[in-house]
Amino acid sequence: MARPYSVQRQRGFTLIALFCFVLLYLPMVTLVVYAFNAGATTSAWEGLSLRWFHAAAANERIIDATLRSLTIAPIAGLIATVAATMAALATTRTAPYRGLTFKYAFINQPLMVPEIVTAVALLVVFSRVKIWTGYSGLGYLIAAHTAFCIPFAYLPIRARLETMDLTLERAAADLYARPWMVLRRITLPLLWPGILAGFMLAFVVSLDDVVITEFVKSAGQETLPTYMLGQLRRQTTPEMNAISTVFLGLSVAIVTLFFFLSRKTD
């Protein structure tokens, strides 16, 4: 008898995966450690202190920029994910039809153009719109972020859909379930990992954007990355590490919450 093949235990794979996680978290460790540095640099340890957390909390501009980033990213990520999910449903599991390739290229276009170019183009067009309408609020940044987030959400969702089994949906349809019911009860739950992956990518990509934001932002619309771009020329103080540590803490809290919730429903 051959030894039964266990897909769970691909030892090489597990090793590489764990290596990846170590690699991903190693810089995070240095980052968190220096957030508690009493000294003023991120390279020489001078003792434990909460000084930089206080400094960050007292720095209006950092708080303001952080909140703005945390406003734009979820909104843009959410709209992008919804639009991308619909688009993915519309462009998969069908015989090729006229315009399908066009749609595919169109949706992925924001990926294809270097950011600086989209940024300049948006600057020119949005500035005109700002002057015409007199509205110069956050809407422009949200629109720009949503647009470049769509492909990041679309690709994983589409990848998921392409290989999803149609049997269940057909069965439900055969049993006269209304299309909306099929979508809600069968398609979306099956699609969920793709949607989650897509949303997380979109969220993170929006949270990170510098160049487009730099060109689209109006007065007082600094986001965390554009604020930090200014710091590049000076000194990276542990203040930034402190903010990042708070972010990390926040995300860990969300994960923990998520973990317990999903345990319950299991």
Binding site: F21, L24, Y25, P27, M28, L31, P193, L196, A197, M200, L201, V204, L207, D208, V210, L224, P225, M228, L229, L232, T236, M240, N241, S244, F247, L248, L250, S251, V252, I254, V255, F258, F259, S262
Partner: peptide
């Protein structure tokens, strides 16, 4: 959960 663990480092800004 593991999926979240992959993305957590990316909550930290690219420059940082």
């Amino acid at each position: 959960l593991w999926l979240f663990l992959i993305t957590i480092p990316f909550w930290t800004n690219l420059l940082i």
